[in-house]
Design a protein around this nucleic acid. Structure first.
Length: 750
DNA sequence: TTTTACTTCGTTTTT
DNA sequence: CGAAGTAAAA
């Protein structure tokens, strides 16, 4: 009995088909990850393939991590040699080695969305673009789409002939790209574009990677865009051992450039391709599957397949309509509480999915009131938070002085009296000389126009130089401490907004934890590498498996996950499907939305509940929406409740009730912190289940002698109780007086 | 240069 | 409604 005997017929065939192009049409829950990992094992153990020659590509770090783990479990020897990674990390690894061939410095930085925005803002200003008619966001998304389609600025310009608007965008694209290059920076899309360009222009590099990656596997193939497709095609061109796995019914990233044709036309590009369909679902009950099939059936232009299950029919799915979003939230919260009470589920078995991130708020508020443990995935990215970005900008400046944006961000943080006027003077000097902003700073005595401002700049430059020198032998954690102490960041945060200071400090602490984790898990500590790993994290990556908490996330984030109990909230026409795509003239938009519904439904293993509200607060006003058309597509006999027919709104249909419920913001009263990214939900010294308000006792009092890791010994001058932490003032022998947070400072009584 | 008060605008979805 | 950006005042 081998590990391969546990596979069904189709799965087994997929595993044994090792040579040539292979398209795996894997329906939801059909065990595709299992097939992929077993296929890798089979290649290594049975076919004698060198693990070194295998590449497995996923979209998120989480997926990559899981695959890595499972491969490790079943492959006897050499599993760590298999290259398992995301598209973006793969590209970064290649570019770090060879991007100099494209005229970039191998030490490039990666710009995130915020960075992109500030660049494009500048560019638009210089191009004299009226941002009322042509918004920066649209320019940016046009550039992104162009890159996804591998269109260079010049090619885009050619295409724009005669189109006034497009010509403007083309000009922006060109200048935007020039700016990025000047800062030796790449945006997310560039990572792919540049890698493709590199492989196309350097045959010897291409050949090297073709030889290395003789067996290639791509997960979630339906979500690949043209650039990703081209990258894969190039790499696989020599040996043609390309196995792609995907489900056209789960293609939900068109807005991000995903090209559904990549999967639909796979057989045209690879005529010799073998196609295997995995249609047996191991995840959901028969009823849930029937619901999913009934909904997706309404889409045209899909590869025909019908999921089936050997599982029992299970209970009917649930449908409930409420007067407003608050009652919807209350119901879901109560329902989960009841399940848990009856012992039918754990919190961690339950997921609440919604269309837009904004919907999480009402749900969160309710869960907080009811004291339910939960965790929100998504929203504002952890690394996009102000306090984290500040520290990151310091690190980037120290690591790579060419990152103008980072330097400009921190030059007046904390306030040094350096304003826009000064910045502009330095920038124009830099432009004149063709040097970077930081280089201009270093030679500021040459900039005569600066006048008195120079005296404010000098200490800043000195400080960075000291940091740079220390960075040579300091670890990352030490470096962060050093920065924070030098600029007295805690005081700065408090000055900024006393209410938020605590939250922000917690985030900083979590950031430090990650730095510690990085140092512990890497033999060679490199600041650049650390910054790079951070740049490529997605929200979903943080979702840890073990925690017993209700998970809240968007339908998009939920792809690839499964839960015993799933709640789909906000099933209303206008919200889901969104108003945007109902009014769109492209019927494909609605189909994509329907696929999203399909993804949502197929996340459920046992119980599925659909909820909606008659009225809902959106953008500060009440909206009245009918029940989602996707609910109407579900046969009545599969539901425990009959949804009201969708019909046009008439006056007097709804009686909007005054909502008396006091609004509680999660911020003031949160048993579990709900923040963008996982792992965040711990506060030092407070274990899960504790309420934040029950502040632990401190082991020292005013007047006691204490020891600090960095400052050494001192005397506690004052302890002030704050909502979630103690603020301790200590006079240190060596370092002098410092004000710090107890949970952060980790003071020890002596 | 910094702070404050007022206006505007947005919601899909994110590696 | 709330965040974020802009104009005016200090």
């Amino acid at each position: 009995m081998s590990i391969y005997d546990t596979l069904n017929k189709e799965q087994k065939e997929a595993v044994l088909t090792t040579e040539g192009p292979l398209l795996l049409l894997a329906g939801a829950g059909s065990g595709k990850t299992r097939v992929l990992t077993h296929r890798i094992a089979y290649l290594i153990d049975q076919m004698g393939v060198n693990p070194w020659n295998i590449l497995a590509i996923t979209f998120t770090n989480k997926a990559a991590g899981e695959m890595r783990e499972r491969v490790d479990q079943i492959v006897g020897f050499g599993a760590d040699q298999v290259w398992v990674s995301t598209f973006h990390s793969t590209c970064v690894r290649i570019l770090r080695r060879y991007i100099d061939k494209l005229g970039y410095d191998n030490h490039f930085t990666i710009y995130d969305t915020d960075d992109q925005k500030s660049i494009i803002k500048d560019v638009c200003k210089r191009q004299m673009i009226d941002t009322k008619t042509l918004k920066e966001r649209s320019v940016l998304s046009a550039i992104s789409s162009a890159k996804n389609e591998l269109l260079s600025p010049t090619e885009y310009e050619l295409q724009a002939m005669g189109d006034f608007q497009k010509k403007k965008i083309a000009a922006c694209y060109k200048e935007y790209q020039r700016e990025l290059k000047k800062s030796n920076a790449l945006d997310f899309d560039d990572l792919l574009v540049m890698t493709v360009e590199l492989l196309k222009s350097c045959p010897e590099v291409l050949n090297q990677y073709q030889e290395r990656f003789r067996y290639i596997m791509v997960d979630e193939y339906q979500d690949t865009n043209t650039a990703q497709f081209e990258l894969i095609r190039l790499l696989a061109d020599k040996y043609r051992n390309l196995c792609v796995v995907g489900d056209d019914d789960q293609s939900i990233y068109k807005f991000r450039g995903a090209n559904i044709r990549n999967i639909l036309d796979y057989e045209k590009v690879y005529p010799e391709a073998k196609v295997i369909k995995l249609e047996q679902n191991y995840r959901s009950t028969g009823n849930i599957l029937d619901v999913a099939n009934a909904v997706i059936r309404n889409n045209r232009g899909r590869k025909e397949k019908t999921l089936w299950t050997a599982k029992e029919q299970g209970s009917r799915i649930h449908f409930r309509q409420f007067d407003n979003g608050y009652e919807e939230a209350e119901y879901i919260s109560d329902d989960i509480a009841a399940l848990v009470r009856k012992g039918q589920a754990h919190y961690g078995d339950c997921a609440i999915l919604y269309r837009t991130n904004a919907q999480s708020r009402a749900l969160e508020e309710r869960l907080v009131v009811d004291g339910m443990p939960y965790k929100v995935v998504g929203g504002i990215n952890f690394y996009a938070r102000r306090e984290i970005k500040d520290i990151l900008a310091y690190l980037k400046t120290i690591d790579n002085g060419r990152d103008d944006l980072a330097v400009k961000r921190i030059i007046n943080v904390p306030k040094r009296g350096i304003g826009n006027a000064t910045l502009d003077k330095i920038q124009s000097y830099a432009d004149m000389r063709g040097i970077t902003f930081y280089q201009a700073l270093e030679q500021m005595d040459q900039i005569t126009s600066l006048g008195r401002a120079a005296s404010k700049l000098e200490p800043f430059v000195k400080m960075i130089q000291v940091f740079k020198a220390k960075a040579k032998y300091y670890g990352i954690v030490d470096m962060i401490h050093e920065i924070m102490d030098t600029i007295d960041y805690g005081a700065y945060l408090q000055d900024l907004d006393d209410d938020d200071a605590n939250d922000r400090m917690e985030n900083v602490e979590e950031f430090l934890n990650r730095a510690v984790f990085y140092e512990q898990t890497h033999d060679e500590i490199s600041l650049s590498e650390f910054l790079e790993e951070i740049a490529l994290v997605a929200d979903i990556d943080s979702l840890e498996n073990g925690a017993d908490r209700i998970v809240l996330m968007t339908l998009h984030s939920a792809k690839g996950l499964e839960f015993p109990c799933v709640y789909l909230a906000g099933m209303e026409d206008g919200l889901f499907p969104s108003y945007m795509c109902i009014s769109s003239d492209d019927p494909g938009d609605l189909e994509e939305e329907r696929r999203l519904a399909y993804v949502g439904i197929t996340r459920a293993q046992e119980e599925l509940t659909l909820t909606c509200a008659r009225s809902r607060m959106i953008r500060g006003e009440n909206q009245y929406n009918p029940v989602s058309r996707f609910v109407q597509e579900i046969p009545r006999e599969l539901m425990d409740n009959t949804p009201p027919q969708t019909r046009a709104m008439e006056p007097g249909d709804f009686r909007p009730k005054a909502i008396l419920r006091p609004r509680v913001t999660p911020k003031e009263n949160k048993p579990y912190i709900a923040q963008g990214i996982g792992g965040l939900n711990k506060i030092a010294g407070i274990t899960k289940g504790d309420s934040m308000e029950t502040l632990g006792e401190l082991e020292y009092r005013e007047g006691d002698r204490v020891r600090h890791l960095k400052y050494g010994e001192g005397t506690v001058l004052q302890i002030a109780k704050e909502p979630r932490d103690y603020k301790v003032t200590v006079t240190f022998e060596k370092a002098g007086q410092k004000i710090m947070y107890a949970s952060f400072a980790k003071l020890k009584k002596v």
